[in-house]
Simulated scan of single mutants.
Amino acid sequence: MLDFALSRITDATTGQPTDATTGQPTDATTIQPTDATPGGPTTQTSGGPITQTSGGPITQTSGGPITQTQGGPTTQTPGGPTTQTTAPAPAPAPAPKPPLLTVATEGWPPNVAKATALLRPRGVAVVAAAEDDPLPFADGAFDLVVSRHPVRPHWAEIARVLRPGGTYFAQHIGPNSVFELVEYFLGPQPDGVRSARHPDRERADAEAAGLDVVGLRAERLRVEFHDIGAVVHFLRKVVWMVPGFTVEAYEPRLRELHERIRAEGPFVAHSTRHLFDARKPG
Rank of each mutant, 00 (worst) to 15 (best):
138 A>Y: 05
98 P>R: 10
228 I>E: 02
139 D>I: 07
104 A>D: 06
223 V>I: 08
219 E>L: 08
159 A>H: 04
128 A>Y: 13
199 P>Y: 07
127 V>T: 07
200 D>V: 03
170 A>V: 09
179 F>W: 07
97 K>G: 12
131 E>P: 05
223 V>P: 01
148 R>K: 13
147 S>A: 15
221 L>F: 03
148 R>L: 14
138 A>L: 09
107 G>R: 14
114 K>D: 13
103 V>Y: 01
226 H>A: 15
177 S>W: 02
131 E>T: 13
109 P>R: 10
208 A>R: 15
118 L>D: 11
185 F>Y: 04
106 E>G: 10
143 D>H: 11
200 D>K: 06
162 L>I: 10
95 A>L: 15
191 D>K: 15
187 G>V: 00
214 V>M: 08
110 P>F: 06
220 R>V: 08
173 I>F: 00
100 L>D: 00
227 D>M: 10
156 A>C: 00
165 G>L: 07
187 G>L: 00
158 I>T: 09
97 K>H: 12
218 A>C: 03
103 V>N: 03
163 R>H: 04
177 S>E: 06
119 L>I: 09
169 F>N: 00
179 F>N: 06
98 P>Y: 02
225 F>T: 08
188 P>W: 01
95 A>P: 13
127 V>F: 00
202 E>L: 08
111 N>P: 06
143 D>P: 04
197 R>P: 00
136 P>E: 13
184 Y>P: 01
119 L>N: 10
165 G>E: 07
100 L>K: 00
183 E>D: 05
141 A>R: 02
203 R>D: 04
168 Y>G: 02
141 A>F: 02
95 A>R: 14
154 H>E: 11
144 L>A: 10
136 P>N: 13
221 L>Y: 00
197 R>H: 09
141 A>H: 01
198 H>I: 01
142 F>H: 05
192 G>D: 14
174 G>L: 01
176 N>H: 11
197 R>M: 10
106 E>S: 11
217 R>W: 12
106 E>N: 13
130 A>L: 05
213 V>P: 13
96 P>H: 07
158 I>L: 08
136 P>R: 04
164 P>W: 12
156 A>H: 07
210 G>N: 12
191 D>A: 15
155 W>G: 10
164 P>S: 13
178 V>T: 05
108 W>C: 05
126 V>G: 02
208 A>D: 14
158 I>R: 01
134 P>G: 04
146 V>Y: 07
219 E>C: 00
197 R>D: 10
98 P>H: 02
161 V>G: 03
172 H>M: 07
121 P>I: 05
123 G>L: 13
122 R>V: 04
159 A>K: 02
217 R>K: 14
227 D>V: 06
106 E>F: 10
96 P>F: 06
156 A>Y: 01
188 P>S: 07
132 D>P: 04
100 L>Y: 00
128 A>L: 05
164 P>C: 08
121 P>D: 13
118 L>E: 11
97 K>E: 12
124 V>R: 11
219 E>V: 05
104 A>E: 05
133 D>E: 14
126 V>T: 08
209 A>W: 09
